[in-house]
Measured scan of single mutants.
Amino acid sequence: DETGKFLVLALYDYQEKSPREVTAKKGDILTLLNSTNKDWWKVEVNGRQGFVPAAYVKFL
């Protein structure tokens, strides 16, 4: 159920650099879980949760 969740689009490829991050490919649609940090947003992609740089994604 996606009610109340926001989707964001990956603008660039991002390769995770730590276990707390997730890899995303340009064009991926990610479920935004938390955007309270202006630099790192928590997302879910391909069943995995983790952080990506906020500058790499935008709201749909």
Rank of each mutant, 00 (worst) to 15 (best):
T3P: 13
E2N: 14
R48W: 07
W41H: 01
G47M: 04
Q15N: 13
K38V: 09
N46K: 08
S35R: 12
S18W: 07
N37C: 09
Y12Q: 10
Y12W: 12
L7H: 10
W40R: 01
Q49G: 03
K25Y: 10
W41C: 07
R20I: 12
E16I: 06
K5G: 10
G27M: 03
V8H: 05
L32Q: 00
L9S: 03
D13E: 07
L32N: 00
K58I: 14
G50D: 01
R48G: 04
Y14S: 02
E16G: 15
A10S: 04
V43H: 00
F6I: 15
Q49H: 07
L60H: 08
R48A: 05
Q15V: 15
A10G: 02
L11Y: 04
I29C: 09
L30A: 03
K26F: 06
D39L: 13
V52Q: 01
A54I: 06
P53F: 11
E16S: 15
V22D: 03
L30G: 01
G4K: 14
S35W: 15
V22C: 10
Y56K: 04
F51V: 04
Y14M: 03
D13H: 05
A24S: 04
K17G: 08
P53I: 08
I29R: 03
N46F: 07
T23W: 06
E44I: 06
G4Y: 12
F6Q: 12
R48M: 08
N46W: 07
E2G: 14
K17V: 08
G27S: 03
L7N: 05
V43Q: 01
L33C: 10
V45S: 08
D39E: 11
N34D: 15
Q15T: 14
E21W: 08
S35G: 11
V57C: 10
K5T: 11
V8E: 00
S18F: 06
V57S: 00
F59C: 15
A10K: 02
F59G: 06
W40K: 00
W40D: 00
Y56G: 06
Y14N: 01
F6N: 10
K26R: 10
A54G: 02
Y14F: 08
K5Y: 12
L7W: 12
V45A: 09
N37F: 07
A54P: 04
V22G: 03
L60M: 12
A54T: 05
G47D: 06
W41Q: 01
K38W: 06
P53D: 02
Q49D: 05
V22T: 03
L32H: 01
N37K: 04
A55M: 10
G47L: 06
L11K: 04
W41E: 00
F6G: 11
V45D: 02
A10H: 02
E44P: 00
R48D: 03
G4Q: 13
D28E: 12
Y14W: 11
W41A: 01
T31W: 11
L60F: 11
T23Y: 04
D28P: 03
V52I: 15
Y56I: 15
W41S: 00
G4D: 10
Y12E: 09
G47Q: 03
L30E: 02
E21M: 05
Y56E: 01
P19R: 09
D1V: 14
D28F: 08
V52Y: 10
N46T: 03
I29G: 01
T31K: 13
G47W: 04
A24I: 15
N46A: 09
K42S: 05
N37T: 05
E44H: 03
N34Q: 09
P19H: 10
P19Y: 10
K25I: 08
A10R: 02
V22M: 06
L11M: 11
I29W: 06
V43P: 00
K26Q: 10
Y12C: 15
L7G: 03
L33T: 03
Y56C: 15
V57A: 00
L7S: 07
K38D: 09
L11C: 13
W41K: 00
V45K: 08
F6H: 12
D39M: 12
V8A: 06
K38N: 10
R20F: 14
E16V: 05
S18E: 08
P19I: 09
D28C: 11
F6K: 12
V57M: 11
Q15M: 14
L33G: 00
K42G: 03
Y14I: 06
D13I: 08
T3M: 12
